[in-house]
Design a protein around this nucleic acid. Structure first.
Lengths: 128, 128
DNA sequence: CGGAATCCATGTGGATACTG
DNA sequence: CAGTATCCACATGGATTCCG
């Protein structure tokens, strides 16, 4: 396995080397929740509990973990309002916002092709 | 702005319900290898061993599993040439090809923002 | 060559309980 | 409200072996 240090050769070049840009980002957004969180925040800032309510099935632990990751990546900004009880707002940063577009493209593809994919799956399974 | 409105049951509509289109596709392409396989095949048909060589780090098991999934989804076509030894070619279907574009958009984003993301990560970790 | 099958280590993530 | 901290079940995926 290659260390994170020496991405020297091809900064974003060959997408098939284990430490390429694509792979690193994929590892970040490829999980179950990240894309969904970004999607919700793309509609506007939201509090922790709002996110949890809107993203069906996410556990508190995973939501926290996902948000921390996004914050670390500089894609989401976390703002604590020192009230009682505490209020925390999450918002996309500029960088996070730029991710919205390619993500929406993927979403559009999903909606457009889900039918075909499902049909293909059924056909495949029947032929087995 | 945040909608408190409860979105009506929309099959591909609300991306945050557990069985929406986005989520289903994400479950498919969200894994470690699917996107990379599609990427390679986007450059042209390839044999099993070619794919394995070009995608650094993929195991035989995972490559097979990934290809089976893509075939089942109708995104990849598998062609067996009855020679000795056997020769198997993989190619993107039309549907698979249409996925290439949104995927490339994501890849472009990755390349463009990896630097920022890495910097943000380091800053975040230092501040901890 | 292109797999299938098995075994097993590890990571992911859910449930639960507790806290500031 | 917005977390943190554990414990643990299960899925992911690597290594290995065998086969047409």
């Amino acid at each position: 396995m290659v260390t994170t240090e020496q991405a020297a050769a091809a900064p974003g070049g060959d997408p098939y080397q284990s430490d390429c840009a694509t792979r690193r980002i994929l590892d970040r957004i490829g999980d179950r929740w990240t894309v969904l969180v970004i999607g919700v925040l793309g509609e506007g800032d939201a509090r922790f509990s709002e996110l949890r309510r809107r993203i069906e099935g996410v556990s508190q632990k995973m939501l926290t973990q996902t948000l921390r990751g996004l914050e670390r990546d500089g894609l989401v900004r976390r703002t604590v309002h020192p009230q009682v009880p505490v209020r925390v707002d999450y918002a996309l940063t500029d960088a996070g916002t730029t991710l919205l577009e390619p993500l929406r493209a993927l979403q559009q593809w999903s909606i457009a092709h889900l039918g075909d994919v499902s049909a293909s799956q059924e056909a495949y399974d029947r032929s087995k």
